[in-house]
C-alpha cells in the first residue's frame, strides 16, 4: 500500500437543498481532516447533524458537493462502485450499506488498490451488555486497528454505558454538530467541551 494517509477529507462539503425549485440549503456539512495512523475514532453528534452523511461520504455511497474523500490514496468517487467496499465499508447497525449514487459509468472508474477494507465505519452498533457480544465487538475493533485499519464507531449516547465504551476503546474523537466536524485528541477533551456537554445533557454530569 502507498504512503498516502489512510483517510483524507479535503475541503469536503455536502449541501442538501430544499428541492429542485427552491434551492435554499436545508443542510450543510463542512469537513476537512486527515488521519495517517491506524486508530479507533469515536463519533458523536445530535440526530440530523450529519453523522451518517459523513460515513456515507467516506464509504463513497454519497458524493460530496465539493471537495474529495481520499482513502489510501484513492478518490472514492473515482473507484468502481462494487469495489468501494475494499477501501471503506459502512456497517449500518446490523447490515451494511452499499447503495451508491452513480455519477459516471463503471468503465470510467478505477479499480480498488486494496483487497480488504482499510476504513471500517460502524454506524450506531447495538451494544447489549446482557449477551456478552459486546466484549467480542470491542476486541474486534482493536484487532482491526492492530491490522492497520482505521475504525470509526458512531454512537448517539443514551446511557452512561455508551460513554464508558467510547472512553474504553477510542483514541480520538469527532463531534458532528453545527454543520462541521470538530476533532478532539482525547476523551477528556470532548466531554468537557461546552457544545458536547449541552448535547449530552444529564449524561455529562
Amino acid at each position: 500500500m502507498s504512503k498516502a494517509p489512510l483517510l483524507a477529507l479535503e475541503g469536503v462539503s455536502k449541501t442538501y437543498r430544499r428541492g429542485l425549485l427552491d434551492r435554499t440549503p436545508a443542510f450543510r456539512l463542512d469537513v476537512d481532516f486527515r488521519i495517517d495512523m491506524p486508530s479507533i475514532v469515536g463519533v458523536m453528534g445530535p440526530n440530523g447533524a450529519g453523522k451518517t452523511t459523513l460515513f456515507e461520504m467516506i464509504a463513497g455511497s454519497n458524493a460530496p458537493t465539493e471537495g474529495r474523500v481520499v482513502v489510501a490514496g484513492q478518490n472514492m468517487q473515482r473507484v468502481r462502485y462494487r469495489e468501494r467496499d475494499r477501501l471503506a465499508i459502512h456497517y449500518h447497525q446490523s447490515y451494511q450499506v452499499r447503495r451508491f449514487s452513480r455519477t459516471r459509468p463503471n468503465f470510467m472508474l478505477e479499480t480498488a488498490g486494496s483487497a480488504y477494507p482499510v476504513v471500517h465505519l460502524f454506524d450506531e452498533p447495538q451494544f447489549n451488555t446482557q449477551d456478552g457480544y459486546i466484549g467480542f465487538m470491542l476486541d474486534f475493533f482493536r484487532r482491526l486497528r492492530d491490522e492497520r485499519r482505521l475504525v470509526f464507531v458512531c454512537l448517539h449516547p443514551t446511557a452512561k454505558l455508551h460513554l464508558e465504551l467510547l472512553q474504553e476503546i477510542c483514541e480520538r474523537f469527532f463531534f458532528v454538530g453545527k454543520g462541521t466536524v470538530r476533532p478532539f485528541a482525547d476523551f477528556g477533551g470532548i466531554v468537557t467541551d461546552p457544545d458536547v456537554r449541552a448535547y449530552l445533557g444529564a449524561l455529562a454530569q
Partner: peptide, 12 residues
C-alpha cells in the same frame, strides 16, 4: 472466550 471481561459480566 469466557476470559473476556464483558463476557464474564454478561448472562453468559
Amino acid at each position: 472466550l469466557r476470559t473476556n471481561p464483558w463476557v464474564k459480566n454478561s448472562n453468559l
